[in-house]
């Protein structure tokens, strides 16, 4: 069941995490390439109530929001993002390669590679006749890699419990979706018998409603494809000059009405929510994230000698 106030709090936390990460890039604590999901929060929040402890999530180079909603330890994740020891991967993975096997969460920096790996997590559940599904997160750009087509076929053929969750933020780095993608991504499963839908990915209710159906199908062994429209509010990476998107386009796309958080806030207020209580809740969530960030940043730097160990287990 989607509880809108819970979803609101969750999205506020996501935004606060991503903003803290942006500050970490500016301060130089995070020296590597960094991709944040600002503007895409409603997608993660929309699947959050549907994810169970039995499920796996395989995400992309823009993974933080999915990790948060699959209940990966947020301090351990932030420690990894801030290049500390004592986090998820002890400084060896970084933000595109987060691994939390206790939650069956991982992500990969190679566009599209998440999709077949998610099939493996789904296969293991299917093979063991265990509950649970796998969510293969991909972007609109990844829809054009051959592995996506191969995986749709294989998932359908083997009736794997997998949801293909495509976050269509309109861009693959600088190339607009329509310049790279023919036809409708949500229809790409049809030839394989995989039903697809496209929803407004800034509307958490729309995402939830469609995801509820998709997750239900996948749990019954019918793979499902869900495409969520959103807009990438940041550049491809932090520091991207982003000159390739027209200002008029950005102004039109990045409005309060299309900000998933402000949109939900307005809706809650239009309902019977008390505005002061929402503001308090938001402050409380931001304070919580600030504590996570402080705890993560307080962890020690990795020992350079550890760079040479751990190639094999």
């Amino acid at each position: 069941m989607l509880d809108l106030e819970v979803a609101y709090r969750s999205m506020v936390r996501m935004r606060a995490v991503e903003e803290a990460v942006q500050l970490g890039v500016i301060s130089g604590e995070i020296h590597g390439e960094m991709h944040v999901g600002i503007g895409q929060e409603a997608i993660a929040a929309g699947i959050e109530p549907l994810l169970t402890d039995d499920d796996a999530v395989v995400s992309t180079h823009r993974p933080h929001l999915h990790a948060l909603v699959h209940r990966v330890n947020p301090v351990a994740m932030l420690a990894e993002l801030f290049e500390r020891d004592g986090g998820l991967c002890h400084g060896k993975g970084g933000h595109m390669h987060l691994f939390s096997p206790d939650r069956d969460f991982m992500c990969t920096g190679i566009v599209g590679a998440s999709v077949p790996i998610a099939l493996g997590y789904a296969f293991a559940r299917h093979y063991r006749e265990r509950a649970g599904l796998a969510v293969a997160v991909l972007g609109d750009g990844a829809a054009n890699i051959g592995a996506f087509a191969e995986s749709l076929n294989l998932a359908a053929l083997w009736r794997l419990p997998v949801v293909f969750l495509c976050e269509d933020n309109g861009y693959g780095i600088s190339v607009a979706r329509d310049a790279a993608t023919a036809g409708a991504i949500e229809r790409r499963g049809e030839p394989y018998g995989i039903p697809g839908r496209r929803v407004d990915g800034t509307d958490v209710t729309a995402v939830y409603d469609a995801a509820e159906q998709a997750f239900g199908q996948a749990r019954a062994g019918q793979p499902a494809l869900l495409v969520c429209d959103c807009y990438r509010w940041s550049g491809h990476y932090e520091g991207d000059t982003d000159h390739y998107r027209a200002q008029a386009e950005k102004d039109a796309a990045m409005t309060a009405e299309r900000d998933p958080i402000q949109r939900l806030r307005a809706r809650l207020i239009a309902g019977r929510a008390n505005e002061d209580e929402l503001t308090e809740a938001e402050a409380a969530e931001r304070a919580r994230v600030a504590e996570w960030v402080a705890e993560a940043r307080a962890k020690p730097s990795p020992n350079p000698a550890d760079a040479l160990s751990g190639v094999f287990v």
Binding site: A113, L119, G120, Y121, A124, L154
Partner: peptide, 12 residues
């Protein structure tokens, strides 16, 4: 697809 599937299955 099937090598990637094997990676996920091994990790699972």
């Amino acid at each position: 697809a099937f090598t990637g599937l094997a990676v996920g299955a091994a990790q699972a």
